[in-house]
Design a protein around this nucleic acid. Structure first.
Lengths: 351, 351
DNA sequence: TTGAAAGCGCTACCAG
DNA sequence: CTGGTAGCGCTTTCAA
């Protein structure tokens, strides 16, 4: 057994020799239009390929054909469940279409994102998908758009997930509508006085959810008080921070908290409990995203489910099927009511 | 502005013409040893490349050089936090080394995994990393080993994460040691009577943790009772199931539950609470993995932290630096004590 | 239906 | 230090 790393993988020439045909025939039999090769030869070729363990050299194919079968995915952070769910959708759709996915991580830096996209062009991917881009309002916005534009000029397709207002295929999440329906549901449960924990205005997702929630409250028709708004970071500790400030301020005028995402909501619940306030009893809490642990916290957290994997799937399909101009798709969200927002019986009313 | 997708990306020839030098010089200036080109020419070339927005065609480079700069990662499921943490580590290490990572998802099928590895060879990756392979005991085991062996023969490197006993670079998790130290810690907290929720024997990870825990109990020297063992699935609902059976059986002789992973532990806590048993008060609970929600459940869950991202990092570095024979690395785990296993005061002793 | 041969974009060797 | 040129492994005319 020769185990030294000196051997090189069998090439098409090896297969051709083994099968007693020309390389052209091998190419046709294995990856070509299939119909123009005598079936006897075709099977000889396949047999030879199998015997030698031949796998076509994808890079060589790519240079010869001038196009690859890869789709490049750019995410903020793979370990974040938000992105990993999207990645799962993308890889699935890619597998269905026989495409390879390459992944790059932009971290929290718009500069890095731009740099990645630039380098990506060297890969000559069929599709570039950018999830949760951070370019809003930064000075990398225009360069990025231009870069992607040039890429498209050379035949590439690009899709943005949750980054709207860009001249590319776009998959958006229905944040506004989800928050709106959540507001309806909570009002329906008897809540009238709310606090909203939101992120700074430039965080688009947060703002969409905030506005959707407000819209839902206003259109509910019920006699809803003007909500108390607390601004904090879009993170778990942001939620804790907001809760701390709410408690400090006093919350006699608040029956329920809507945090614009689940990690904020969960952080808030922890802090509330530490302050002697029992979530779901003394104060209802709702979040957004319906992350896995939403159902494991106590009490289970009311939230709005966002089918992120679906978003990844759709992004791929959009780019694969669409014509020349930027297509749009919106992923619906759905309210999931749990014990953190129990139905409010009149007798429960405070004071 | 020409926006039709007819243009093709600039090639090295374009750059050469623009800079007034030969392609050979461009190649050297841009990707070569750098030292053999007059600095004036080098900067002309760089300027031309920048002006044209030239990016080297990676596939062409790969065919010419005979080697790619990609590392292929095979995971069970990207959306699973276990794998996405590993993926994060792999992508980070890859970025540091200037490598592109491609990702394939094997799902729960060993056949699919084998098929993926076979196809992967067409990519000619520098490295193949397989995380959490499911081949144990299946009849795809040998073919997989052979396939990977051939790949290595042609100069590729392969690393397995958490799949030991294979003739490749391997990164293992110290499951045994972590469980052992957890046992010590719990005994140190005053617990003497345990139930263990474990998965079926063929689940290697579960068995390692189970045995480690037993070893820890035995060597603790304390007067520890023979633990009650409940076998269930390695999932959240498995944990619920186990808890249900424990409650049905009666648990007067149990002070603490060790579930071999966090999702089981969390499922168990939910079921216990529904049965009127307060986790952390009536019955202590500990898990393993220290997943994100371990600190969000009530009470926060004692667990054993597994630095999965580190495992991904190490796997890449192992393959990049190691010599010819299979290198090994073990990732240490660490006990994280939280309120689900409070220190047991003598007065708390039941009866 | 087949084979010969001319590329694909890039690297690397060989002269100069 | 530079340019010419022969490959890398594959696809795709073009004739036969």
């Amino acid at each position: 057994m020769d185990d030294r790393p000196n051997t090189s993988p069998p090439t098409m020439h090896d297969v051709a020799r083994e099968a007693g045909v020309s390389v052209a025939t091998v190419s046709r039999a294995l990856n070509g239009s299939e119909r123009n090769v005598r079936s006897e030869n075709a099977s000889r070729v396949r047999a030879a390929a199998a015997k030698l363990g031949y796998e076509p050299h994808l890079s060589a194919q790519a240079t010869a054909k001038g196009s690859t079968r890869t789709i490049a995915l750019v995410v903020g952070d793979v370990a974040d469940p938000y992105f990993s769910a999207i990645a799962a959708g993308v890889t699935r759709a890619a597998a269905e279409a026989g495409l390879i996915v390459t992944m790059a991580v932009a971290g929290r830096s718009p500069e890095r994102e731009l740099e990645i996209v630039r380098k990506l062009r060297g890969q000559r991917p069929r599709v570039i998908i950018i999830a949760g881009s951070r370019i809003a309002g930064t000075d990398t916005r225009l360069p990025l758009i231009e870069e992607l534009g040039e890429y498209r000029t050379t035949g590439g397709r690009v899709a943005m997930i949750s980054q709207r207002d860009l001249p590319f295929d776009t998959v958006t999440i229905d944040n506004h509508g989800g928050a709106r329906r959540l507001a309806h549901a909570l009002v329906g449960h008897g809540y009238r006085r709310f606090a909203i924990f939101r992120a700074p205005e430039h965080v688009r997702t947060s703002t969409d959810r905030y506005e959707g929630f407000l819209a839902g409250l206003h259109e509910s028709g019920a006699d809803v008080a003007e909500p108390v708004v607390v601004e904090a970071e879009f993170t778990r500790s942001g939620g804790q921070d907001a809760a701390r400030r709410l408690v400090a301020r006093g919350f006699d005028d608040v029956e329920a908290v809507f945090a614009v995402n689940d990690v904020m909501a969960i952080g808030a619940m922890t802090t509330l409990r530490e302050a002697g306030v029992v979530p779901g009893e003394d104060l209802a809490v709702a979040g957004f995203d319906d992350i896995g642990s939403a159902q494991d916290v106590v009490p289970p957290l009311t939230s709005v489910a966002v089918p992120l994997m679906e978003a990844g799937l759709r992004a791929v399909r959009l780019t694969l099927s669409s014509g020349d101009d930027a297509a749009q798709a919106q992923i619906p969200t759905s309210v999931v009511l749990r014990e953190s927002t129990p139905i409010r019986r009149p007798s429960m009313r405070r004071r």
